[in-house]
């Protein structure tokens, strides 16, 4: 099973450097991941590096606490779109959830959704902070607010996604929105399990262990071939001033 088309390759640590972002882009290309997810200040850089690919650039707003004002979240989302983001992940206002101020929880989400129009909105509900009833309630609110995805976790809380939570969300929302599992998905095997219980998209980090050898599908993909060609061209360029190019050709 080729799962790469379900993966958002994610790097959100505050200490992330430009160099690490470029490596992230290269690896996303190599593996033909569905998307890449970075903080707002790196959206334009990532867009620049992935402009010739189908890889979707995704960013986060109100991250990771969800405690900025709705107006700030809207501004942040619009700024991200301007910088080239193609999907937005927003964190729900957990304080409002805990205050049982569900009207404000709904308004927070629906105002952001209205501001970004057709751009897919993933609402991160941070399941580690919610009990089962709250997971159900917040999932229902996300649907009412026209969220495109319900996402489990920021990766910055006590724990990440659980299979149980995915099942609860799936049972609640049926097919009214897609589900993204994120946080603590460390390898291929667990990724497959999440997809099997109803997740449509998975957030994985740079430490994710995929299958060792590329599947045939991957090797034959157009983008992967393009990547190999461009990589080959680059290394040719680098070799121009040396005799190694000739040597290689001679060997062939």
């Amino acid at each position: 099973m080729n799962i790469n088309a379900h993966l958002d390759y994610t790097l959100l640590e505050s200490t992330t450097t430009e160099r690490e972002i470029i490596d992230l882009c290269n690896k996303a290309r190599e593996n033909n991941y569905f998307g890449i997810c970075v903080n707002g200040s790196y959206v334009s850089l990532v867009k620049q590096f992935l402009i010739d690919t189908d890889i979707k650039v995704s960013t986060v707003v109100g991250f990771p606490l969800g405690c900025s004002t709705t107006k700030s979240k809207i501004y942040e989302a619009q700024q991200a779109l301007e910088d080239g983001a193609e999907e937005i992940g927003m964190v729900v206002n957990l304080g409002y959830v805990k205050s049982k101020n569900y009207v404000s929880v709904l308004k927070d989400i629906s105002d952001v959704k209205m501001a970004i129009g057709d751009t897919p909105l993933k609402v991160i509900i941070e399941i580690s902070e919610l009990n089962k009833n709250e997971i159900v309630r917040v999932s229902e609110i996300c649907i009412d607010a026209r969220a495109d995805f319900i996402e489990t976790s920021t990766g910055f809380s006590k724990s990440g996604a659980t299979l149980t939570a995915i099942k609860i969300i799936k049972k609640t929302i049926k097919d009214a929105a897609q589900i993204k599992a994120s946080g603590d998905i460390l390898d291929y095997e667990s990724a497959v399990k999440y997809l099997e219980v109803g997740a449509d998209r998975l957030g994985i980090s740079t430490s994710f262990k995929g299958l060792n050898n590329n599947t045939r599908q991957q090797r034959n993909s157009k983008i992967y071939k393009q990547y190999l060609e461009s990589a080959a061209k680059k290394s040719e360029g680098a070799d121009l001033n040396t005799s190694s190019k000739e040597t290689t050709i001679n060997k062939l």
């Binding site: 959100l12 640590e13 505050s14 992330t16 903080n39 707002g40 200040s41 790196y42 959206v43 707003v61 991250f63 990771p64 606490l65 405690c67 900025s68 004002t69 107006k71 700030s72 501004y75 942040e76 700024q79 991200a80 910088d83």
Partner: peptide, 22 residues
Amino acid sequence: GFPLGAMSTATKVSETAQALKD
């Protein structure tokens, strides 16, 4: 820009303006 500090400058400025207004 709390707690990561990793959002765009424009967003931090806007968040600040809103906080001052509030």
